[in-house]
């Protein structure tokens, strides 16, 4: 099953390469495609992008490690991002992050041992009107206090 998925993912990457490799600045575009297809950018994928664009593997690696959006390791099943933008910070988002870190027993930036959650401190999400906010995958939760955190986690643990 996993093998089939991988083959399918590779196919999608090859489509992206066929579509964009000739464009100016293709390395970024293809890394973004790879990140969205695989959820991270493994080394063999970096090599494929290097081969397709004429860049060296070290150049591609350099770009992949420069930007926060690309990760070299696979993440957890759900990604929790606590906004540490200024508006959220002054309204106490650090306390949300501390609470999550405590409940999940994981440091920000890391994935839980059961690979269920990756906890991240994110840059401003631009939802300052709802501060403090956190995001679980694509879902935004706003106007939070630390006591709301266990309830949010429960939603994803039940699955």
């Amino acid at each position: 099953m996993a093998e089939e998925n991988r083959a399918e993912q590779m196919l999608r990457l090859q489509q992206a390469i066929a579509e964009h490799a000739h464009e100016k600045g293709a390395v970024m575009v293809l890394l973004q495609a790879a990140q969205s297809i695989f959820g991270h950018v493994p080394q063999d994928v970096q090599q494929m992008i290097a081969d397709a664009t004429g860049a060296s593997l070290s150049e591609v690696y350099g770009v992949a490690t420069f930007y926060a959006q690309f990760s070299l390791e696979p993440g957890g099943e759900h990604e929790i991002g606590v906004c540490l933008g200024t508006a959220c910070y002054v309204k106490g988002s650090q306390k949300l992050l501390d609470k999550l870190s405590e409940l999940l027993a994981v440091a920000p930036g890391k994935t839980t041992a059961d690979a269920k959650f990756t906890l991240k401190a994110t840059r401003c999400l631009g939802a300052c009107g709802l501060a403090p906010v956190l995001m679980v995958d694509d879902e935004v939760y706003g106007r939070l206090v630390p006591e709301d955190v266990p309830g949010i986690l429960a939603k994803y643990l039940g699955q």
Partner: peptide, 18 residues
Amino acid sequence: AGAFVCGEETALMASIEG
């Protein structure tokens, strides 16, 4: 792709160049 420095003009252009 999540790099604050890319708001700086020469960095932004480097980023568009991939």
